[in-house]
């Protein structure tokens, strides 16, 4: 474990806490893409298959349970909760996220480190996570004004993988037998997708104005 990865995990946790706070306290999911939440639940379900078979550390297991639990409960809230579901912006959250699932799965079948069920699903979860934010970014562009909690949620979600990139560079230089170009490639694509969001996020923060993504 290094400081970059720990910061990354805590930033990721922070994004989920911000989202749960928004949904649980103000009982609203306005501006949040259900498609992205469903993709993330799928990412965790396919990545943490080994949660009960491989024990790495208490931290690792606890965090996996938190990510699995929160991602599925957020999907449940947005689909089933009587009040929250009313604020779901169904008309704007129309990105066909199945268009993302299939190519990621096909790519994982072709481009993987080992052709086993677990490894292919794990690779699939990496590729899917890289593009899972797209429905949310599309929804942000369509939403007139983006509220602070939603903006902060997307910011923390984007920042966490950026810390992971630094962690991979750090591990590359400190553990000489460590290289995973598939993970790096997916991580770079994932972080690159946030670049324009980061630009508008910092601009709105600097000028102290409402966050607005150009359509």
């Amino acid at each position: 474990m290094n400081i970059f990865r720990l910061t990354g995990d805590l930033t990721h946790l922070m994004s989920i806490i911000v989202l749960l706070l928004k949904i649980h306290t103000i009982k609203s999911c306005a501006g949040i893409s259900l498609k992205t939440q469903e993709l993330y639940a799928l990412v965790f379900a396919t990545r943490y298959l080994d949660i009960f078979t491989t024990y790495i550390s208490l931290y690792n297991t606890v965090m996996k349970l938190i990510f699995l639990g929160t991602s599925f409960s957020i999907v449940w809230y947005m689909r089933r909760h009587k009040t929250v579901r009313l604020s779901y912006d169904k008309n704007n959250d129309t990105f066909r996220h199945y268009f993302l699932v299939l190519p990621c799965f096909l790519l994982a079948l072709v481009l993987n480190n080992r052709f086993t069920v677990r490894e292919v699903l794990w690779t699939f979860s990496l590729y899917l996570e890289a593009v899972a934010i797209i429905p949310q970014l599309v929804l942000l562009q369509r939403s007139k004004n983006v509220d602070n909690l939603t903006g902060n949620y997307v910011f923390f979600l984007g920042a966490y993988r950026g810390f992971y990139l630094i962690n991979w560079i750090y591990r590359y230089f400190t553990e000489n037998h460590y290289r995973r170009w598939i993970t790096w490639m997916a991580g770079i694509v994932q972080t690159a997708l946030y670049v324009d969001f980061f630009y508008y996020y910092f601009k709105s923060w600097k000028n102290n104005e409402k966050l607005k993504l150009p359509a």
Binding site: R5, D50, N60, K64, N113, Y178, R180
Partner: peptide, 10 residues
């Protein structure tokens, strides 16, 4: 050398 299995990360 076999790649370190990255499964120790989240």
């Amino acid at each position: 050398v076999e790649d370190v299995d990255l499964k120790d990360e989240l």
